[in-house]
Nucleic acid binder design. Sequence first.
DNA 1: ACCTCCGGGACCCCCCGTTTCT
DNA 2: AGAAACGGGGGGTCCCGGAGGT
Lengths: 177, 177, 177, 177
Amino acid sequence: MAASETRDRILDALEQRLLQSNPATVTLEEVAAAANVSKGGLLYHFPSKDAMLAALVRRLADRAEAQLAEFRSAGSSLAHWYLQTPNENDEAELALYRSAIASMRTLDSQASELREAVAEVMRTWKEGLGAEISDPVQAEIVRLAGDGIFFSALLGLPQPDPELHRKVIERLLGASG
Amino acid sequence: MAASETRDRILDALEQRLLQSNPATVTLEEVAAAANVSKGGLLYHFPSKDAMLAALVRRLADRAEAQLAEFRSAGSSLAHWYLQTPNENDEAELALYRSAIASMRTLDSQASELREAVAEVMRTWKEGLGAEISDPVQAEIVRLAGDGIFFSALLGLPQPDPELHRKVIERLLGASG
Amino acid sequence: MAASETRDRILDALEQRLLQSNPATVTLEEVAAAANVSKGGLLYHFPSKDAMLAALVRRLADRAEAQLAEFRSAGSSLAHWYLQTPNENDEAELALYRSAIASMRTLDSQASELREAVAEVMRTWKEGLGAEISDPVQAEIVRLAGDGIFFSALLGLPQPDPELHRKVIERLLGASG
Amino acid sequence: MAASETRDRILDALEQRLLQSNPATVTLEEVAAAANVSKGGLLYHFPSKDAMLAALVRRLADRAEAQLAEFRSAGSSLAHWYLQTPNENDEAELALYRSAIASMRTLDSQASELREAVAEVMRTWKEGLGAEISDPVQAEIVRLAGDGIFFSALLGLPQPDPELHRKVIERLLGASG
DNA sequence: ACCTCCGGGACCCCCCGTTTCT
DNA sequence: AGAAACGGGGGGTCCCGGAGGT
């Protein structure tokens, strides 16, 4: 078995579980089973659950740049993507990122490795939005609104009227997107 | 002991714990102790944790109208309040509402009493913003941004530059607030 | 409200719950609700669950003689009745008696009021069987077999082949029933 | 510590508690303590209480065959053993089997692992009786009577007159035992 | 005398992230 | 890396007591 092919297999399994079952209830045991590893084996690679989640988010971060480039070369806008309601087209990247957050034990989570990893990805996206939207204030608004959309979805609150949502996007990105 | 003063005492204790300790880790026992009630006593009034949290949110909802009126009579704007970063002035109402959410066990939480209560308060605020901001699209943007702000705070992510945040508010509310 | 109509209403409710839901899981609350009494009200009449069950069994005992007479005048045999498998025709009397037993918290139950009440009814039936079956040894066998039948049913074990069961009854009662 | 000696140690502890204290009130914690295992350790081996009890009954079942052979080689009869009143000679096997039953939470217990295990042992004994008593009707009667005896004992009802009981056995087994 | 509201407390089963031994 | 074991709650259930109305 290659050095740390296992590591990736575990993260793959984690992604799978995060996407398929209730993100908030994913357990180490579940992930280990899905990765065909013993719980001990999992803990060998990631000393704690927090570390495992953080590693996932970091892997996501590693892909973020490529993502951004891809978006641009594909002519599509990061901002549009960021403002989607999750059910619209839930790109795996975004869904995973959000699921990882949802699986944090304690949402406020002071000083956790995970929080730092999340903060880093957030920074990356923020920068991406900043590069795409020249006006920094507008970029920040887009970012906040995107987070707000995700937050509602996370809570299972009723999604706003699609028509209204479309207009929101238009208003936010019409001039700059 | 007076009629159902206890019920309120429990909710008061719940508020206290929610505000003082990690909202996500508040336990029934902890609340019961803070309310000088046995766990059994607590469970008499609220058959489950979910029910207790929902009751808190509903109590918040009952105060929401008064809040809105107060804001208006005080000449201050609901929108401004909604866009504050939590640490700025952490009005108990808003903080509590958000903490209650943070204490949900399973964030996706289908079919929970709490989620419904939250949805209702959300609706109230949404309407409040709608009444204050004539343009519905703008109102929705403000709402989403407010949720985004809270979400970041919930995760313990670094707060944005205050200056930028000020400008965001200005941009969002300048024309309509 | 008449003297102790309530007492009887409670026992009626108890019977109803015992027959309709899983006898082993009937709770005071459930019974109280079915009797339109508060839990405290129930406890006023019966100081404990055991006492309540015992009262039920005693009420059953009070009816036992009448039952026996009825059986004889109807030309049917107590023994046949006693050997029925519960699903066959589960006369309320028998079902209730057995359900009461099933609802004992601790089946071994040393020194409980209920146990004594049960013992008394058992004695009554034993005597009834003794009067019907002249041979005391045969009467005892019938009694034991009847208890064995009930026991299996109580455990949810598969019921024996009906044909075999019919033959058992024939063998046991053929000569004397 | 050897492989899964612990598993057996837990079942041993369970047996001990079942025999020594009120079978219906044996708790996981109690068993864990008696086995010198933590609660978590116990749950590692048996995912639920029901599973633990079922494992015990299955272990009993594994011994049942040996038992039957032993009985036969010792020239004693299974039927006699089965008809004994528990206090007479309370063979551990029988007592345990019965205690396990007594500890079922909900006696009707649909679809429980335990119930199935019990049904299996019951079948083994039934077959043993069938092999020993040529007449199937008679075998069934013996089985039912044996269950009835146990049932009375389980309830703590007064044991019948020993003399009568002796005659019952004689009658039931005289011709075939 | 009858009954209700409000609680109390003991436990129960189970979960889950981790450490320890091999 | 796997198997085994740990231990600290977590939420929830249930039988019951007691103060006080009517």
